[in-house]
Design a protein around this nucleic acid. Structure first.
Lengths: 221, 221
DNA sequence: GCTGTATTAGACTGTCTAGTCCAGATTTGA
DNA sequence: TCAAATCTGGACTAGACAGTCTAATACAGC
């Protein structure tokens, strides 16, 4: 045991392990930790239950492995490389749209639900995941804001707090409402409108003083 | 059966029912739906298990009764009655502080966790609770903003969307971070600073044009 | 005090689950 | 080709849990 996993990447054992993690992720996300049984995961992975226990000591360890794997798979939709060729308004607008769409994805919602529900039971996971996901996203956004400030196209003193402000304005209670079934999934047009309002407010607050401010916000539906 | 419950308010039966609901709320909030067993709830309520089933047909019905009871107990910390004697800045600031403190209360956090976790299993609850809690709060805030706009002390076109914007700016990712263990409970001073930033941004966006704008925000911490 | 109803403790059923064990089949690596 | 490791499926243990049942007790209204 404990052989180099990479060497065996094409081997059956490693494929089984992957299948278990994939199936486990699906079942945990779908049902939550308690309601996900090892038998169902085994069936989903097309693997015998014993095989799961060959790879993971317990249900809890499997869960932790899956979640911690997910942190490496989180993708942040903000490419600062494009920033030079764009304007703050365009870049923030497209970032905002991407972010809204991403966070309202069924799998993102399921992930959020799972993390909120289980972070009490498994404290270390939540912080790790936050750092890899939302935290990193805010940090990248702050980096971009910093860069634009140096360039003179924005005027922000505390970029970390401004980044959080922007994301807060953008998302508001939307995720909670969708999660809780208070409203349908918004259309793309509604998301775009929401993004536009947030960007426009943000630029009103943080555009350099010598630049004409945006239209007064809050007129959106 | 089905006697008027109010008449029997001083009776033993009604007291038992109350004890069951109270104990059930505590156990559900503490452990979540799945991990809360009827035996534990009975013990906590100092009641026999059969008595629970005399009052509620099933665990699920008990859960629903408890949650729907909570909706009537939600208190919104915004008294517009004080508004006339104050200024938008002062009132929003105090509202913001109250709201932040309220939402970071251990019991509020536990409630949030429970709702997020269980709204998938019991869809109708989430919407009801949202309407009674966060939704009503946003609505009251919007009402206040409307009133100040009519009075000429604010200039807002869409007050509902502005209310959500304000709450979004105020809370940002804070609840999620605390819930997930990414950060400690913030001190009162930090909460106040956070409220100040949000209020100042909000007033910059929505103060009437003839009034001097606030200091440029984002300088916090 | 009498009568009917609610409560109680605890035994009990049936179901579900995490985790183990085993004997035979398959795969892997040399 | 052979031996070690891994996989399989299914039976099994032990415990938890929702919900029922019972026989005895406490209580409320008349």
């Amino acid at each position: 045991m404990a052989k180099n996993a990479r060497v065996a990447a094409s081997g059956q054992s490693e494929r089984k392990r992957q299948a278990i993690q994939t199936a486990g992720a699906a079942v945990f996300l779908d049902r939550g930790y308690e309601a996900a049984s090892m038998d169902v995961i085994a069936a989903e992975a097309k693997v015998s239950k014993q095989t799961i226990y060959n790879h993971f000591h317990s249900k809890d360890e499997l869960f932790k492995a899956i979640i911690s794997d997910m942190t490496t798979a989180l993708v942040i939709p903000l490419s600062i490389s494009e920033a030079a060729a764009s304007t703050p308004q365009k870049l923030l607008q497209s970032f905002a749209c991407d972010l809204l769409k991403l966070m309202l994805t069924p799998s993102s919602l399921a992930m959020y639900r799972l993390i909120v529900a289980e972070s009490a039971r498994v404290p270390e996971l939540g912080a790790t995941l936050y750092a890899a996901g939302a935290g990193q996203l805010l940090h990248k956004l702050a980096g971009y804001l910093e860069w634009e400030t140096k360039r003179g196209r924005l005027a922000i003193e505390n970029t970390e707090s401004a980044a959080e402000l922007f994301v807060g304005m953008l998302t508001g209670r939307l995720r909670f409402r969708v999660l809780v079934g208070d409203c349908e999934m918004p259309s793309d047009a509604e998301l775009k409108e929401r993004a536009t309002v947030a960007v426009s407010c943000f630029l009103t607050l943080f555009a350099p003083v010598n630049i004409e401010p945006m239209r007064r916000p809050g007129s959106g539906r």
